[in-house]
């Protein structure tokens, strides 16, 4: 099965994406782990695109495609904002105590930790970024 959605890159779209995931996870009969990873990836990556992806004033979009046609769950997130490879994001500081601990970079760290495979491609010609996340 394959499902896709396109939403504007704005905060109001997060609720729409979560509704979309609810539909998709029910229809695709995903495992609990795949369900969790799909929610994690969509929340962390979409939030990142909304926060940092597009210049202020630009009406950007986020495209999401979920498929398990080839067995494992494939999640593809596309946007045309600034190129950003989540695999190259700095490791978060996991060592501080309560008062000194910060959580910058934690979302992408969790995506990397819980996924089986991540691939990123920026197409300089069209400006599209594409992130593929696979979870078996």
């Amino acid at each position: 099965m394959e499902r896709c959605i396109e939403v504007p890159a704005e905060w109001e779209s997060i609720a729409r994406l979560i509704d979309f995931v609810d539909e998709v996870t029910g229809a695709m009969a995903l495992s609990e782990e795949q369900d969790y990873v799909m929610r994690l990836v969509i929340e962390e990556i979409a939030t990142n695109i909304i926060k940092y992806g597009y210049e202020d004033g630009i009406q950007g979009v986020i495209q999401l495609n979920c498929s398990n046609l080839r067995g494992p769950l494939h999640i593809i997130i596309r946007d045309r904002g600034h190129p950003f490879d989540p695999r190259e994001c700095v490791e978060p500081d996991l060592c501080g105590d309560v008062q000194s601990r910060t959580i910058g970079g934690l979302g992408l760290f969790l995506v990397r930790e819980f996924s089986d495979y991540l691939a990123y491609h920026h197409d300089a010609g069209s400006g599209w970024n594409e992130l593929l996340v696979v979870k078996g």
Binding site: Y36, R39, L40, E44, V98, R101, I103, L106, G107, L110
Partner: peptide, 19 residues
């Protein structure tokens, strides 16, 4: 049954404040 980084941030912010 679901937390992501925003929820962790919320819990840590509250922990810092209450401590």
């Amino acid at each position: 049954d679901f937390v992501a980084s925003l929820a962790l941030r919320m819990l840590l912010t509250n922990l810092k404040a209450v401590q």
